[in-house]
Amino acid sequence: MAQASQATIGDSEFDRDTAVTRRADGVYDIDLSAGWTIINAVNGGYLLAVLGRALADHLPHPDPFTVSAHYLTASQPGPAVVRTQTVRTGRTLSTGQASLFQLDEQGNEVERIRVLASYGDLDALPDDVRTTAQPPAIPSIDQCFGPDDAPAPVPGSSAIADRLMLKLDPATLGWALGAPSGKGEMRAWFGLKDGRDADPFSLLLAVDALPPTAFELGLSGWVPTVELTVHVRCRPAPGPLRVAITTRNLAGGFLEEDAEVWDSSDRLVAQSRQLARARL
């Protein structure tokens, strides 16, 4: 049997499912795909990529540099409207805001997520890099484990897993064996299942695609995002990404998740911090 061709940036399921259609200046339509859901709720990283695509069309600069999102209500698969607004434009950076809306059962428009973001041109950045950060120590992909290795999927949670190449570090898999480490760490190799290489918009997905660190803290169930800020630092090199997420403080029913994303050239390409609600 001939091997299926690898998807490319601009021609993949991720690109089709995050594509927005301009209805008018600053107004975009999209049908949120059920393929990016976790327990029937649309994944927050996928939503960030959708709004990121709309802002890239609306603003004069192409690449997200920093994106801060507040998740107001849970998004559902189906029709949605994105409204964008320019806040400021400059020579090297432009700033805009965007909100995604859906209709509730009574036909009332409900805001699901609101974003404030600054965009620039990653290819125009200087080459100078000075960092003390180190790539995470993760075993090779063939020594890590993904959803396909589990005895049975979690009901309602497999849709997004079917679209990802996700291989978790065994050291962060205690929760899956009923023995969470209590360390609040999650590490994995990450990519899209169809082989599409990473770009700035898929980095917005990568920071929110791993199982929550709350699992390794001994908690279970949905961990809804309250706020998520992503910094895109560099256009990633081709190949799988490594994602490392840590939580140092669970208090008052909320926890933070600090994520780093590294590409195949050992470059730190994205960082994020998320505040999430823990179901105690």
Rank of each mutant, 00 (worst) to 15 (best):
A117G: 03
Q106A: 15
A98S: 10
R112P: 07
I113P: 01
T73N: 13
V115I: 13
T131C: 11
S99Q: 14
S118G: 03
Q106E: 14
T89S: 14
P126W: 01
G120K: 03
R91V: 09
L122W: 07
R88F: 12
G96P: 04
Q102M: 07
E109G: 04
T92M: 08
I138A: 09
L116N: 15
S118E: 05
A137D: 14
G90V: 04
F101Q: 03
L116W: 13
T84S: 05
Q76Y: 02
Q76S: 11
T89A: 12
L116T: 15
L93I: 14
P135R: 00
T95I: 08
T84V: 07
E109A: 07
P126V: 07
G90T: 11
E105G: 13
V115K: 11
A133I: 12
G96K: 02
R130K: 07
L93P: 01
D104L: 01
E109N: 04
S94L: 07
T92P: 00
V110G: 06
L93C: 11
D123E: 15
A137W: 00
Q134E: 13
A117K: 04
L100Q: 00
D127I: 10
S140L: 13
A133V: 12
S75V: 02
T73F: 05
P77G: 08
L93D: 06
E105D: 15
A124G: 08
Q85G: 06
Q134P: 01
I138Q: 09
V87S: 12
Q106C: 09
V110C: 10
L116H: 14
L122A: 04
L122K: 02
D127E: 05
S118M: 05
S118Y: 10
L103G: 00
R130Q: 09
G96S: 07
P126R: 07
V81W: 04
S99F: 04
L122R: 08
V110F: 06
D104K: 08
E111I: 00
Q106V: 13
Q102N: 11
A137N: 09
R91K: 13
Q106K: 14
A133M: 14
D128H: 14
P126F: 03
T89Q: 15
I138L: 09
T86D: 13
V87A: 14
G78V: 08
D128V: 15
S75R: 01
E111N: 06
R112L: 03
A133K: 14
R91A: 05
P139A: 01
R114W: 12
